[in-house]
């Protein structure tokens, strides 16, 4: 009995790391650019299809293709922020929101036209391999994907802590006026941040292919998931995003096991509502002054 539970929890943790990586991208964009990237999940699904195509056409393993995909997504994010989104800085929130809803609709339905509405399994060669650790049976793909996600997260934390651009971006997030006063090029930093946010989601999406089949309809669900995680973790807290990702991963796995897989996201929404009401700053977020 205990071993079943352990299996469920471990699987939740491994999935949660991917969720966490995806949410990390949103957290950076939300926290720094103050932009509600309502197309976040849709970008993740685009990345899934990219990895899927690369694998089907040339047999590139998603664990490797995530690197070029992340790079391309960075460029796309940078360009998007520089052109379209920049025009919306300083406009009311809801206008940005609607702009990105528009982007999301275009992305999902573009995928729908190109790939059709049905799930397409990638069939990785090691999809059904697993490690046996004592009583645990752990899927190999999940371990690979989780390790890769951890590596990307670590790189990101390193970037924000140890590089000049990274610290400058954090300065922007903390105090926008101050950052502009000391001569930081806020617009460029915004573009870099949006690029990084999309690179995260690109990497996460590519890795997601290893554990889920790409379907266009996943887009809105992933967007909501990412927001749920970011809000639960606490706006602006990168560690919070990771922790909440794990929490959601585990809670979904447990709820799926206990109740019904189809009801697992009800659990996340309930959690989201509870956090919004009881602790709006999120689990690890700072209380607003």
């Amino acid at each position: 009995m205990l071993s079943i539970w352990l299996n469920v929890v471990v699987q939740g943790v491994l999935t949660g790391l991917l969720y966490g990586l995806m949410a990390l991208g949103l957290s950076a964009i939300f926290g720094v650019v103050r932009l509600v990237n309502f197309a976040h999940g849709e970008f993740a699904v685009v990345a899934m299809y990219a990895a899927f195509v690369l694998f089907r056409a040339w047999g590139v393993d998603p664990l490797w293709s995530m690197l070029p995909i992340a790079a391309v997504f960075f460029v796309v994010g940078f360009a998007l922020q520089r052109t379209l989104i920049n025009a919306f800085v300083g406009r009311p929130d809801y206008q940005q929101f609607i702009l990105l809803v528009g982007v999301a609709i275009v992305l999902v339905n573009g995928l729908l036209i190109v790939f059709g509405p049905d799930a397409q399994p990638a069939n990785l060669p090691y999809a059904f391999d697993s490690y046996l650790v004592g009583p645990l049976i752990i899927d190999k793909v999940r371990v690979y994907a989780a390790v890769a996600a951890l590596a990307v997260c670590a790189a990101l934390f390193g970037f924000f802590r140890f590089t000049r651009t990274g610290t400058a971006i954090r300065a922007c997030a903390d105090n926008l006026v101050g950052a502009a006063v000391v001569g930081l090029d806020v617009r460029r930093l915004y573009a870099v941040t949006f690029g990084i946010g999309l690179a995260c989601v690109g990497a996460a999406g590519a890795l997601m292919v290893t554990i889920a089949d790409p379907v266009p309809g996943l887009g809105p669900a992933y967007t909501l998931l990412a927001f749920t995680i970011v809000i639960i973790g606490g706006l602006g807290s990168m560690a919070g995003a990771l922790v909440a990702g794990l929490l959601i991963g585990v809670s979904e796995a447990v709820a799926g096991f206990l109740i019904a897989p189809s009801m697992k996201s009800m659990f996340s929404f309930a959690l989201l509502i509870a956090v919004l009401v009881l602790r709006p700053q999120g689990l690890l977020g700072k209380k607003p002054a």
Binding site: V36, D93, F97, L224, F227, T228, I231, S262, M263, S265, M266, F269, A270, L272, I273, L276, V277, P280
Partner: peptide, 28 residues
């Protein structure tokens, strides 16, 4: 919930989405 607990702006929008999605899955 929203107006008593000061859930505003984007957070309010997300709350409304969460309730709709929650109910959708419930009705399934």
């Amino acid at each position: 919930l929203a107006f008593r607990f000061g859930i505003e702006g984007v957070y309010f929008s997300l709350l409304t989405i969460a309730f709709a999605e929650f109910t959708r899955i419930g009705f399934d």
